[in-house]
């Protein structure tokens, strides 16, 4: 505001500035393969809520720092994705494995340095989820926080020896191993693709485990009746049950999608007490949105698995007919209205 009054601007410019001043939603996303962002943007357009979608790819065309969105123009930020891929021109002309890795890592760090400047540029309270917490989310810490909120979690440990696994198998008939960070996807020279998913260890395959290995997260295996993915939006839970038990392919991890016999996905209402505890967890993390994965065992006990703050909600919204993209657009729109009286 002070900037505008200080400028010797013509009345026309002034009124234009005033019109666009507060009234904009900033969406940080990527240019490709982001159907959920597209959907939310389409709802925003339909509801005539002004927004600016900034894809990570757009930053590669940045002319100067002042091109970045200015704090005073932004009412709320929805941070969905960072970037899909760097423009092809920033690749080595000749493949060189060692240099390529170092350079790629460097480009990512450089990009992150620029991208996370936005976290500082725009007031922290305007972000739907606190960007600093979101960017440094730690699976082990989230599990610890969940337990602090008296949410039941599967027994979890980080181990480095076969001996330790062997002793765990005395308590739990089966354990699973999954990454502490995120799953990766690998490609071989022939174009074969490999995805890293949750794997089970039991007495019968224990011999495949080396004596010593890199620190790995292990968890008791829960004999599940079904899984739950619950999307949180501003205090409300929108949950979906995922029945995959009949399907050998998805028995361990529902991401082992089976396109011929997909998992059954239906609306689910979490018990009120669990909702309240999960709500507490989201508050501790300063998240107003995100997806939570849970598991229900044969006896009906709930286990908290993890949080995905970026919110994979398309896979919940459509099968359950929840219109979460519309709800999110409306919520973002409300933050403009909230801001307007203050700036007028």
């Amino acid at each position: 505001m002070t900037l505008i009054t200080a400028l010797p601007a013509s009345p026309v410019v002034l009124s234009q500035k005033n019109n666009t001043m507060s009234a904009q939603i900033l969406i940080l996303s990527q240019s490709h393969l982001e159907g959920s962002t597209d959907h939310v943007c389409q709802w925003l357009s339909h509801l005539r809520i002004p927004f600016l979608r900034l894809n990570g790819e757009d930053l590669c065309q940045l002319q100067r720092l002042t091109d970045l969105p200015a704090n005073e123009n932004i009412a709320a930020v929805w941070y969905r994705r960072k970037i899909h891929s760097f423009p092809a021109q920033y690749q080595l002309k000749k493949a060189d494995f060692n240099t390529e890795y170092t350079l790629k890592r460097f480009l990512i760090d450089e990009f992150n340095g620029l991208h996370s400047y936005l976290f500082h540029l725009i007031d922290r309270h305007k972000w739907l989820n606190d960007p600093f917490t979101e960017d440094s989310l730690n699976k082990l810490q989230v599990l610890a926080l969940a337990r602090k909120c008296s949410i039941h979690t599967p027994f979890t440990e980080v181990v480095t020896t076969k001996k330790e696994i062997e002793s765990l198998l005395n308590t739990y008939p089966e354990i699973i191993v999954k990454p502490i960070s995120e799953c990766i996807f690998l490609e071989d020279a022939a174009g074969g693709q490999y995805k890293m998913l949750t794997k089970t260890i039991h007495h019968a395959n224990l011999h495949l485990v080396p004596e010593n290995f890199f620190p790995s997260l292990v968890q008791e295996k829960v004999e599940k009746k079904f899984e739950i993915r619950a999307f949180y939006l501003n205090g409300e839970w929108h949950a979906m049950a995922i029945f995959s038990q009949n399907n050998q392919k998805t028995r361990e991890d529902f991401r082992n999608y089976d396109t011929e016999r997909p998992n059954r996905t239906v609306p689910y209402q979490l018990p009120a007490t669990l909702e309240a505890k999960l709500h507490q967890l989201m508050k501790l993390l300063h998240f107003r949105t995100g997806s939570v994965d849970l598991m229900v065992d044969k006896q009906g006990n709930y286990y908290f698995l993890e949080i995905n703050p970026e919110g994979q909600f398309g896979m919940v919204s459509y099968p359950c007919n929840y219109y979460l993209e519309k709800k999110l657009a409306i919520l973002l729109g409300e933050s403009i209205q909230e801001l307007e009286p203050a700036t007028l």
Binding site: V266, P267, Y268, Q269, L270, P271, N321, Y323
Partner: peptide, 8 residues
Amino acid sequence: ELTPLSLS
């Protein structure tokens, strides 16, 4: 907890 599908 298995609620009906909203038909909206």
